[in-house]
C-alpha cells in the first residue's frame, strides 16, 4: 500500500511537471512528425510496406530517446535525486513512476505518429497498435533504467543513446515483425521482452542509483 502510494505520488509529480513545463511531449510530437515527413520525402514512391514499417519503428525509437533524455532533467538540474533517494520508500518506486510517465508520453506521441504514418505511407493494423503499446512498455522500462545510469555520468548525452539503442534492437525486431509478418510470434516476443526487462530494471534500479 505504501509502495503504491509512493508510485502514485511520484508519477503524479512527473505528469504535473510536464503539464506545467510543457517541454518533453511537444518536442516528441514535433520530432516524430518531422521524422515521418522527412521519411515520406526521402523514400521513393512504391516503397514496400515492410520498409515503410521499418521507418515507423525508427521514428518511434528515436522519439523515445528524445523523451528519455528529458526524463531525469528536473532531478538532475536541481539535485533532487538526493531527496528522492533519502526517502524511505523502496527505490524501485522511483523507477516505476518514471517509467509510467515515459510510457504515457510515448503513447501520446504515437497518437500522432500512427495516423501520420497512415497518411504518409499506409494504414496500420491492430497488430501494429498492439506492438507499439508492448514496445512502449519495454522502452519505458529499459529507457528509465539507462536514463538513471546516464544521469549519474559526466557524458550523459552520449551515454544514454549508447546504452539504450543496443537494448532497443529486439524491440525494433519485434515491432517490425508484428506489424508486417506473423503477428502472434512477434507479439509474444515483445511480451517476453517486456517481462524480462521490466523485472531486471525493477530489480537493478536500486543498485544503479545507490553509491552506498
Amino acid at each position: 500500500m505504501r509502495y503504491a502510494s509512493a508510485v502514485v505520488a511520484l508519477a503524479r509529480k512527473d505528469l504535473l511537471l510536464e503539464l506545467r513545463a510543457k517541454e518533453t511531449v511537444p518536442a516528441m510530437l514535433l520530432f516524430v512528425l518531422a521524422a515521418l515527413t522527412v521519411f515520406h520525402f526521402a523514400v521513393p514512391t512504391g516503397t514496400s510496406q515492410t520498409a515503410a514499417l521499418g521507418l515507423l519503428w525508427v521514428a518511434i525509437i528515436f522519439t523515445a530517446l528524445l523523451g528519455l533524455t528529458r526524463a531525469f532533467v528536473p532531478e538532475r538540474e536541481q539535485g533532487l535525486l538526493d531527496a528522492l533517494l533519502l526517502a524511505p520508500c523502496d527505490r524501485s518506486a522511483i523507477w516505476l513512476a518514471k517509467a509510467f510517465s515515459v510510457f504515457a508520453f510515448l503513447v501520446i506521441a504515437e497518437l500522432l505518429a500512427l495516423p501520420a504514418f497512415s497518411l504518409f505511407f499506409a494504414g496500420v493494423g491492430w497488430a501494429t497498435v498492439a506492438a507499439a503499446l508492448l514496445a512502449d512498455i519495454g522502452i519505458s522500462a529499459v529507457g528509465t533504467l539507462v536514463g538513471a545510469m546516464a544521469v549519474a555520468g559526466r557524458a550523459r548525452e552520449l551515454l544514454l543513446p549508447l546504452l539504450f539503442l543496443p537494448l532497443a534492437i529486439p524491440i525494433v525486431v519485434g515491432g517490425v515483425g508484428a506489424s508486417s509478418g506473423t503477428h502472434g510470434h512477434y507479439l509474444a516476443f515483445l511480451v517476453l521482452y517486456d517481462a524480462v526487462f521490466c523485472l531486471l530494471s525493477w530489480a537493478a534500479f536500486e543498485y544503479v542509483v545507490s553509491e552506498t
Binding site: 509529480k13 504535473l16 511537471l17 506545467r20 513545463a21 528536473p74 536541481q78 539535485g79 533532487l80 538526493d82 531527496a83
Partner: peptide, 10 residues
C-alpha cells in the same frame, strides 16, 4: 544540501 531540493515547477 546546497540546493533546497524542491521541485521548482510545483
Amino acid at each position: 544540501g546546497h540546493e533546497p531540493l524542491v521541485y521548482r515547477e510545483l
